[in-house]
């Protein structure tokens, strides 16, 4: 038991939480942005899969991780824009559009891998793992000074470039939402689209922009998956992270920092599961931990929210009575 505890409380464990949190955090921020504009993008999962694939392929073709990263971002945006055309132009229920993109993300990507690379190693083995070498992975960064601090150094320093970007983007997303005119438009469109359109804010354009941004975020998340988290793309590698991001968005009340905290909880759950299986637990028991935590998280969040609302109403009522 003490063995378990000590290995859990190691710096390496906390390091892994941050690493595991990063890809989900990208997707979560994507969810936060579109939800502010009043859209539920459940296609984040599929976008991550598709951009993870193209990221790793482009990195291979160009022999440059940077080109791969760029490609993943662009593909993410393109897919999100295609979704937008269906959702906003052809008035398709956004949830159904998301389901379709997820179908392409799971099965369609294998088709693409096979037909693009002419690999014929059988269905289950289809992946681009053989193509990605460690030079093509997104580089890690040792932060000077901080890396030498005991305990904290090994936890915070030495992550992938994208990990730092993910946490930086939490702040930038907040600035975007609350300090820029795009953010103002976005929130207006989410809250009262008629009000926005009546003053000439193009609701459609704002929604397209929000979707594109969420695609960009999911693209970054996908790139992280295939070019940092793992070596190359493989079947079902995103494994529900896009959906977990939706849950994190809800639990964070749709605010960037709140959603980040929720994401870290999921990161912890997954790191914990991995830790458990590394010390002998059947991986089929540890793997579902993040999914179970997601459900529990949503339930706890719903109960807390309900209590908070009831309390607020009660408090207001009490105040009213007092004033009389």
């Amino acid at each position: 038991m003490s063995n378990v505890l000590s290995s859990i409380l190691s710096a390496e464990f906390f390091f892994s939480i941050i690493r595991i949190t990063s890809p989900i955090l990208f997707a979560t921020l994507g969810a936060v942005i579109v939800e502010k504009a009043g859209i539920s993008n459940i296609g984040l999962e599929g976008i991550m899969m598709i951009s993870a694939l193209f990221g790793s392929l482009c990195a291979y073709w160009s022999s440059s991780w940077f080109v791969g990263l760029l490609a993943a971002m662009i593909v993410g945006v393109i897919v999100a824009l295609i979704m937008s055309v269906f959702a906003f132009q052809l008035k398709t229920d956004i949830i159904l559009v998301g389901i379709a993109i997820n179908m392409i993300g799971s099965g369609g990507t294998i088709f693409l891998v096979k037909s693009i690379t002419n690999m014929t190693e059988g269905e289950a083995l289809s992946s681009t793992t053989s193509l990605i070498t460690s030079e093509l992975q997104i580089p890690t960064v040792q932060i000077p000074l901080i890396q030498n601090i005991p305990v904290i150094g090994p936890i915070i320093s030495g992550h992938s470039l994208l990990t730092y970007l993910a946490f930086l983007l939490v702040f930038l997303t907040w600035v975007l939402l609350y300090k820029t005119s795009l953010g103002l438009n976005l929130r207006s469109v989410g809250e009262n689209p008629n009000a926005a359109s009546s003053v000439g804010v193009s609701v459609t354009r704002v929604r397209y922009t929000a979707m594109a941004l969420s695609g960009l975020m999911a693209g970054l998340g996908g790139a992280f998956m295939s070019m940092s988290y793992a070596m190359g793309w493989s079947l079902n590698m995103v494994a529900g992270r896009g959906f977990i991001a939706l849950a994190a968005q809800a639990m964070g009340s749709g605010e960037p920092f709140g959603a980040m905290l929720a994401t870290i909880v999921f990161g912890f759950a997954q790191a914990f599961g991995i830790k458990l299986s590394s010390i002998g637990l059947d991986s089929n028991l540890s793997s579902p931990i993040p999914y179970i935590i997601t459900i529990i998280g949503l339930v706890v969040f719903a109960i807390v929210k309900r209590k908070r609302d009831a309390k607020r109403v009660a408090a207001v009522g009490a105040k009213q009575r007092k004033e009389k």
Partner: peptide
């Protein structure tokens, strides 16, 4: 310009923010 029967205002924004919405 049009003043709608149901106000085209965003409730959580301030008056000034509503004023400049779309021309910030």
């Amino acid at each position: 310009g049009m003043v709608h029967q149901h106000f085209m205002l965003v409730p959580s924004l301030t008056v000034a923010e509503n004023m400049v919405l779309g021309m910030v």
